[in-house]
Design a protein around this nucleic acid. Structure first.
Length: 958
RNA sequence: GGGCACGUAGCUCAGCGGGAGAGCACUACCUUGACAUGGUAGGGGUCACAGGUUCGAUCCCUGUCGUGCCCA
């Protein structure tokens, strides 16, 4: 029995358990051993995360694809898991420690802290997974992975060591984006440029050999800067080589104010004569552009900041080198002053000596850390880098060749843009939570990269024996005795960028580098579903790593979906805290309603700003389906064994089979093309506007009437069409459909594992050849028939049934419309006269008497040669349907109505004729378009003639 | 500054070379035996603006204005 009311919360809780217990989503089910696999790896949410709208959309779409393919018989693996999210997680735990007033990370020490993070993960790491389950995600939960799992860590180590051996990972001292709050390097991608209102300071740098005089412009050169405090690290001044103002100064020195360092004036195209003074100070250790300029001219790099962003001058050999007497006094005064305070004080000091020419307000972009939101400092440090440029080449080629395709295609441009200008990827992070870099340093700082410490020590001992740093005897002793080698080599403290492990996700989760059968079976995956915001962070890097280590693309299709934005149109993010909670929507309207809303709004290439009213509307849709199923149940509609819808005799039943097959094709094709909104729209219209509004209504007289073969057939068909709906709707609304599937009949199995309505037919050899050519080489495991299945449901198409039911619908609709227009109350029944009806109509009408009477509120239906006097005359599919309503019909009003109809017909005739009279139209337009226009004209002419007749009769009668 | 989108009904959004669509909201009527989370019938849009291409433009092209995002 179906419950009276649709209560999503109850159903969802129950169905989750049913699915879990039945292992319905397990990949590699024995009964699908021979099925073609279909694989999606989930974009692993951060363990710190909780479900936001972006996740809800992303996972709804993946689930639709997975459930769809599972019903189509494939062996689906939807690989779930979570990401350790280095910085985010470390921050969460540190914050927790602070809130509980417990010792901080550094006091605790690395080992203890990491224990603490794991403990946190054990307590809270399941949050997001449970929320995904609430959404209905049909992942193979038994295969859940975590980027810091033993297996995945092994993959990370192996990849690092191999790339290092190949020279694709290296250590380099160069500028990085340094977060002075988190005390770590971050990658370019983690830096957000934010517009900040600042100043442009024009500083006077005295020319060597001249006596500085603020009034005499020949004694100094003016440089403009937004960061005056970095001047302490200046090692040059650059002017444009063709800037005439400065030609004579090129090659000369200036004396750096306050510091006294002599620095050279160089010619470099980097300085823009149009901007500021045309001369720029060069600080290679604190600016990315200056770093390049410095390289070109061999300028020194002098770092004047420490890790926290404070001036670091005392004991700073680079800084002090070559400075005149007395420089140490200044160094002592300014040492350990924070960079922003230093800016103020240095400007003051410069002003006091007349070194500041002027200060202008200046708005510019300042880099901020996306996690800490603190100002990022270009900082000179040793870091590990991946040679992304080399790895990007095959990744670019794979997309160029179409081996991997983006949907929608325009994202390929973005991908190429970035990949072709890719910079070395800084992968080391000065954090504790993450994969510790497998590199060890010997006593002299030489680095040994190896998978294990044992391996590293053996390399190191071999090396130092050879270098005669230690004797062969010492080497042997240390190799044999742990205690003796203790502290001889020390491991790199840094961990890897979180995205380093995410880049391996498509194969590390399958068991690589072990020789796991899953790697063979499920790699490459079929489609990656993600938002465009992580194309660079994640998609591109998976492409690079997948191609390098598996020698195969990680996925053949990349479906990029919209971003769900907050009400202001801003991107939602975990750290910004501007997330809308989809769980509230699930609580209020149900997961099915939320999923359907997201699918219906997932039009390609457009962002989603979610309106709650839509969710409510789709909840109502679920209610509608619920009640329609109750109606079927109350009328004992059930599917008898061996029922063949194609053999139905009743026109109405043939019609719903016809309509149903049409919808099936629409939904199937739309999902295949990732047009989720079209698929959702098609099934929505079918359920509500076809099945409920017309089929069920038209079937009522039969269902409520006496027993008959027609009634038996209709009962079967009502149930059959309901089952078709449940199947088609299942990928979108899994909970309600599974529930209804279970309670409406005795079933062989779960709906989640039932067959999709369209059966694949064996393709002909010609079709196979054609498909093989079209499919290309991307997915060798997939037979062409799977890439583009061939379906056959010609059995259901029935134009005759369509015409007949169409006539009924038109007739009823028009009568209803005119009744409403004339304010005839529903309680008043009217008679219907079919005037001058064709043989076809005379044959059809009796079959629909009950239905039409019921739906159009009629007392009787009769035939006549002509419409009775004083009747409202409707034109239904070219024939007159008259409603004689004595005393109700206002003749004047009816004339006006007919006049309006005639005017409309006239307009149609005119439009068609003017087109057809246009020689160019007839000559240039497609034949079927012209033909269509002719048909329109004929139809309008006929309509007008009939309307004129009707008008004539009305005139005669009055 | 470069790039990518987007301006369609009051709101949220589809559509996209051959007569403008949905959901919500709105109006009127309806306790009809699945459903008032419903039914029936309506109202509402120079498809941002200006040019161009075309037999024909909401749709393609160019420009303008406005909005958003990404990268400098």
């Amino acid at each position: 029995m179906i419950e009276k009311n649709y209560r999503p919360a109850d159903i969802e809780a129950r169905m989750s358990v049913v699915w879990e217990d039945s292992l319905a989503f397990k990949a590699g089910r024995p009964d699908r051993r021979d099925a073609v696999p279909f694989t999606i790896v989930i974009p692993p949410p951060n363990v710190t995360g909780s479900l936001h709208m972006g996740h809800a959309l992303n996972n709804t779409l993946q689930d639709i694809l997975c459930r769809f393919e599972r019903m189509r018989g494939r062996d689906v693996l939807w690989q779930p898991g979570t990401d350790h999210a280095g910085i985010a997680t470390q921050m969460v735990v540190e914050r927790q420690l602070m809130e509980r007033q417990q010792p901080g990370r550094r006091e605790m020490g690395r080992e203890k802290f990491l224990e603490r993070v794991w403990q946190w993960k054990a307590e809270s790491g399941d949050t997001i997974i449970n929320q995904l389950k609430r959404l209905g995600a049909s992942c193979d939960w038994s295969r859940e992975r975590f980027t810091m799992d033993e297996g995945l860590s092994k993959a990370v180590i192996k990849v690092f060591v191999e790339l290092h051996r190949e020279g694709l990972i290296y250590k380099d001292k160069r500028l990085v984006n340094w977060d002075t709050k988190l005390l770590t390097a971050i990658s370019d991608l983690e830096v957000q440029q934010t517009e900040v209102k600042g100043h442009l300071w024009y500083l006077r740098y005295p020319i060597e050999g001249k006596t500085f005089d603020p009034e005499d412009r020949s004694t100094f050169i003016v440089v403009a800067t937004t960061r005056p405090e970095t001047m302490l690290g200046d090692t040059g001044v650059a002017v444009h080589p063709e800037d005439e103002r400065y030609q004579k100064l090129i090659g000369k020195n200036v004396v750096l104010p306050l510091v006294g360092r002599k620095i050279r004036i160089v010619a470099d195209e980097y300085s823009d004569p149009e901007k500021g003074s045309g001369a720029v100070k060069v600080t290679p250790a604190h600016d990315f552009n200056d770093f390049e300029v410095g390289n070109r001219h061999g300028l020194r790099r002098i770092s004047v900041l420490d890790k926290e962003g404070c001036l670091d001058l005392i004991d700073n050999e680079d800084y002090l080198k070559g400075l005149p007497e007395g420089a140490s006094q200044f160094a002592e005064e300014f040492n350990k002053v924070d960079r922003f305070a230093a800016r103020k004080r240095i400007v003051e000091r410069l002003e006091s000596f007349g070194f500041v020419e002027r200060i202008e307000p200046h708005t510019h972009m300042v880099p901020h850390g996306d996690r800490s939101n603190s100002v990022i400092e270009p900082y000179l440090t040793d870091q590990w880098y991946v040679d992304a440029k080399t790895l990007a080449k095959p990744a670019i080629a794979a997309v160029r060749s179409g081996e991997t395709t983006f949907v929608p295609k325009n994202w390929e441009k973005t991908y190429f843009e970035w990949m072709e200008n890719i910079q070395p990827w800084c992968i080391s992070r000065q954090l504790w939570w993450g994969h510790q870099i497998p590199a060890w340093y010997g006593p002299d700082g030489k680095v040994f990269v190896a998978e294990t410490e044992e391996e590293a020590i053996s390399h190191a001992l071999g090396y130092y024996v050879e270098q005669e740093v230690i004797t062969a005897e010492q080497g042997r002793e240390m190799a044999l005795d742990r205690n003796k080698r203790e502290g001889f080599i020390t491991r790199d403290e840094d961990v890897l960028d979180t995205w380093f492990s995410s880049a391996l996700w498509p194969f590390s989760t399958l068991g690589w580098p072990e020789d796991a059968p899953e790697v063979q079976r499920y790699y490459p995956t079929n489609v990656l579903v993600t938002g465009f915001d992580i194309i660079f962070f994640w998609v591109a890097r998976m492409m690079m790593m997948g191609l390098h280590f598996m020698k195969e693309i990680p996925f053949s299709t990349i479906y990029i979906h919209a971003l769900v934005r907050d009400e202001k149109g801003a991107k939602m993010s975990k750290s910004k805290g501007n997330v809308i909670d989809p769980l509230n929507l699930i609580d209020e309207f149900g997961a099915d309603a939320l999923r359907f809303t997201l699918a219906a709004m997932a039009a390609q290439g457009r962002d989603i700003k979610l309106a709650t009213s839509r969710v409510e509307g789709y909840r109502n849709f679920a209610t509608k389906l619920w009640n329609a199923s109750r109606f079927a149940e109350m009328n004992h509609c059930a599917l008898p064994d061996g029922f063949e819808p194609a053999k139905a005799k009743e026109t109405l039943n043939r019609w719903i089979a016809h309509e149903s097959a049409h919808t099936t094709r629409e939904v199937t094709e739309a999902i295949e093309a990732y047009r989720f909104n079209d698929a959702a729209g098609a099934i929505y219209r079918f359920v509500w506007n076809v099945y409920c509004d017309w089929y069920v209504e038209l079937a009522k007289p039969v269902l409520l009437g006496p027993d008959s073969p027609a009634k038996d057939e209709t009962r079967a068909m009502v149930a059959w069409a309901r089952d078709e709906i449940l199947k088609l709707l299942h990928p979108f609304m899994p909970f309600i459909t599974e529930e209804l599937w279970e309670v409406t009949a005795k079933r062989d199995g779960l709906l989640a594992l039932a067959d999709w309505p369209l059966k694949r037919t064996e393709p002909t050899p010609e079709q196979l050849a054609m498909l093989a050519a079209a499919a290309g080489p991307t997915d060798p495991l997939v037979s062409p028939a799977f890439v583009m299945p061939i379906f056959d449901h010609a059995d259901f198409t029935d134009p005759k049934a369509e015409a007949e039911i169409g006539w009924v619908i038109d007739l009823v609709t028009q009568i209803r419309s005119v009744r409403a227009e004339m304010n005839i109350p529903p309680a008043t029944l009217t008679a219907l006269v079919l005037a001058g009806a064709s043989a076809e109509t005379k044959e059809r009408a009796p079959r629909w008497t009950d239905v039409i009477k019921r739906m159009a509120r009629l007392s009787e239906i009769s035939f006549a040669d002509r419409a009775p006097d004083g009747a409202v005359q409707l034109l239904v599919r070219g024939e007159v349907a008259a409603l004689p309503i004595k005393g109700v019909v206002d003749v004047a009003a009816e004339r006006t109505r007919l006049d309006k109809e005639i005017a409309k017909a006239d307009a149609d005739i005119k439009r068609a004729e003017s087109k057809l009279a246009n020689e160019k139209f007839v000559a240039n337009a497609a034949e079927e378009v012209v033909e269509e226009e002719r048909e329109k004209r004929e139809a309008a002419l006929a309509r007008k003639a009939k309307l004129l007749e009707a008008l004539e009769r009305l005139k005669q009668a009055s």
